[in-house]
Simulated assay, not measured.
Amino acid sequence: MSAVASGAVDAPRLRFIDRVNPVTKLAAAMLLTAPLLLTVDWVSAATALVIELVLFMAAGVRPRMLVRRAWPILIAAPIAGISMLLYGRPSGEEYWSFWLARITDGSIELAIAVTVRVLAVGLPAVLLFMRVDPTELADGLAQVWRLPSRFVLGALAGARLVGLFIEDWHAMALSRRARGIGDTGVLRRFATMAFALLVLAIRRGSKLATAMEARGFGSDRPRTWARASTIGWSDWVLIAIAFAIAVAAIGAAIAVGTFHPVWS
């Protein structure tokens, strides 16, 4: 009940994001990510992350909601930072070493930069793609970006089958447990269920391909679309925000003197 109430509270304040075309969200994520990948420094990543957190708060994204949605990013960021801390490029004073692992001033700075950068790149994607309809995304890719309809429809069909695979996995687990063969041998159970799911996926994919071919989805003729995918003012506002964040992050790094291109 509380989750429903929380979603109802957050929904009105996220209407701006919901009005944006899914392909615009994808373009904004790419526009924000590309400049941050050109440099490895903590200032640009920290600047982008602070601005993003402020925008998250303005959009009504609560910390609990962000943690629930972005927990894989929150786990991956420190793991990436620890690997850079131990095995990054050594420079400056050395504090600890063991075989190939060395902690130095350079590895510490690199670890901080990588950790913050993973958060700055991953968290916006979580917010932008929090509620994206695959069909709307396919409409935008085909009508706005003019991608081949055969590729778009095939990707859409594959995305729709992911939910079925998850349901099939749960159904197989329950059926095996009902027969008394699902309580022991974790590795063996996983291998047998994965093979069964693979066979089921191949059969279902073959049937789906045949059905789509019979309905003319493989034709080279131009297709018509049930719903029009358009670009409005909210899309341009999101692009402007992403561009401004990228420029502010790179500008801050250059102003402070920490800009460090990845190719140098």
Rank of each mutant, 00 (worst) to 15 (best):
I108S: 12
P148N: 15
G180W: 08
R102M: 07
A248L: 13
R19I: 02
A11N: 09
G106I: 03
L100W: 13
A142Y: 00
L31F: 01
R131S: 15
T135D: 11
L147V: 08
L38G: 08
S206L: 14
R89G: 07
G163N: 09
G180S: 15
A8T: 11
V237R: 13
G232C: 05
R204N: 14
G7L: 07
G182F: 06
A240H: 14
A101M: 12
S206G: 08
A46R: 01
G163Y: 06
A228G: 03
A228H: 00
A48K: 05
A253E: 09
P261M: 08
Y95C: 05
F151N: 09
A142H: 00
A253P: 07
A138P: 04
I79Q: 07
L14W: 06
W145D: 03
A159M: 15
I73P: 03
A226G: 06
R177D: 11
L110Q: 04
L110T: 06
I75A: 10
S219K: 02
F129W: 05
R176Q: 15
V126M: 13
L86Y: 06
I51E: 10
A34K: 03
I166Y: 09
I166H: 05
I181N: 12
A46I: 03
V262N: 13
F56P: 03
A125C: 08
S264A: 12
R102F: 08
L26M: 11
V43F: 06
A27M: 01
D41W: 02
L174C: 04
D139V: 00
E136R: 02
W169G: 12
T135S: 07
S219R: 13
L197S: 15
A178F: 09
W225R: 00
W236Q: 05
I245E: 14
I166F: 09
H170V: 14
I250V: 15
A248E: 08
D18K: 03
A120K: 00
F16H: 05
T230I: 01
G88R: 01
G106L: 05
G218E: 09
L197Q: 11
V9K: 07
I254V: 15
A211N: 12
V186N: 05
V132G: 04
R215D: 12
L123M: 04
S175R: 11
T33C: 04
I75K: 08
M30C: 10
W233I: 13
S44T: 02
I254T: 12
S234W: 10
D41A: 03
S107I: 02
L119F: 01
F165W: 13
G106T: 05
S91C: 07
P22S: 01
F129Q: 01
M193V: 15
R177I: 08
A11F: 07
Y95H: 05
A77W: 01
A70D: 06
G185Q: 12
L38Y: 06
R179M: 14
A244H: 13
V114E: 01
A226D: 11
V114S: 04
P22W: 00
F243V: 15
A155M: 14
G257D: 13
P261A: 13
A255D: 10
